[in-house]
Design a protein around this nucleic acid. Sequence first.
DNA 1: GAGTGATCATTA
DNA 2: TAATGATCACTC
Length: 224
Amino acid sequence: MVIMYSSPVSLVELQLRSNALAGLTLGQIAAQLQLPVPANLQKDKGWVGQLLEQVLGASAGSKAEPDFPHLGVELKTLPIDRHGKPLESTYVCVAPLTGVAGQQWHESWVCRKLQHVLWVPILAERQIPLAERVVGSAFLWQPNSEQQRALQMDWEELMEKISLGGIADIRGAQGKLLQLRPKAANSKALTNAIGAHGEPIRTLPRGFYLKAGFTASLLQQQFG
DNA sequence: GAGTGATCATTA
DNA sequence: TAATGATCACTC
């Protein structure tokens, strides 16, 4: 039994708890928490993440702070295929589109959120029913100096473009590890940004995402 | 609307 | 088939 709802007190405890989940199916974990498993994720896209938050004792909610505030750790589920390859990019945080002049990398949400991440791989090929998907070996990650530099470069390029009114020209392909993509309820949800001529405009909210190739390299680094 | 959790689904 | 752009549900 791995029923533990309280918040982990230490990194070691968090590791122990997450290790105890390896090999369990999402259905088994949901049963422990007495939660129903949706038929699919079409209308419950955040369900897996929220399930893991609960079983690991992360502070729930929509607060703009780490999942484990006391430990400064962010929890991320990582959907992978049978070969251990990520199936999706990983959302990091929303991107500020105004008042961004003079922002420093080390003060940014991206940097802060990625300082310490608990990655929880999930075997999540679409053909596998949600309840039968298996949790893999979770691991704690902190960016090494090389990763840190590369992330900072991407971030600075993207933020410079935003601050200079180039938001409309930024596509998902820009950036090596980090990309900027829409992050909105729908195409009608708009927010303020800076236009090509410095004028205020309305545009789709954007979020920072880690490209799947980068999270693949993290898995490689961890598991060889 | 902005933030949390992400995956969906069409396009290239 | 991978990746980009679009979207879903929920809280505050």
